[in-house]
């Protein structure tokens, strides 16, 4: 049952990830991305990591994708985007991506994947264990990441804030 679900979710997430790239209409791309995120959240549930699954759904499938859709709607981008890549760029991209794919498949084909120590009992993803790990072993990266978020916030506000001097350049540019 678990194996079946695993393959089903994997197939759905890969297919939707491909659709994100192949869809002409940006809104369809965003919708397939949401399905892909839900499939990945399903993987987390299979790994018994309920907390990660919930956070993934709330943050990615919820907040971020709604933001994406809002931006698309506000900027009125929900028309099919004109093709702007030349054939040369497409061929180059296909060759480069294909080489990476071949390398990955060749290297993974004969490799045995060993289980990670401590993950056998399936309890590692529970909220209690996650919290313990975050506040003991990983406390330094956990705290340091606050600098990252603060910097990102300040950067976003700085870019979004209007200069006091020229009030003329309002949102009319959009």
């Amino acid at each position: 049952m678990v194996a079946f679900l695993f393959y089903l979710l994997s197939a759905v997430s890969v297919l939707c990830a491909l659709l994100v790239l192949l869809m002409r209409n940006p809104v369809h791309s965003v919708l397939s991305l949401i399905i892909a995120f839900f499939a990945i959240a399903g993987h987390y549930v299979l790994l018994n990591a309920q907390f990660l699954a919930i956070v993934h759904v709330i943050v990615y499938a919820g907040a971020i994708m709604v933001l994406f859709l809002f931006v698309l709607m506000i900027l009125n981008l929900n028309k099919a985007a004109p093709p702007y890549q030349t054939t040369l760029v497409k061929v180059m991209g296909a060759i480069a991506g294909g080489l990476l794919l071949v390398t990955m498949v060749a290297s993974l084909k004969h490799s045995a994947i060993q289980p990670v120590a401590g993950a056998e009992d399936g309890q590692i993803g529970l909220v209690k264990n996650l919290g313990k790990a975050l506040f003991t072993e990983y406390v330094v990266p956990f705290e340091i990441s606050s600098i990252l978020f603060l910097a990102a916030m300040v950067g976003a506000v700085t870019l979004g804030m209007r200069n006091k001097k020229d009030n003329s350049s309002a949102i009319t540019h959009l």
Partner: peptide, 15 residues
Amino acid sequence: MMFLGIEILSIPMYA
């Protein structure tokens, strides 16, 4: 920590 460091270094630079 290396990944976090690279992100903390880069994100202010993007802005």
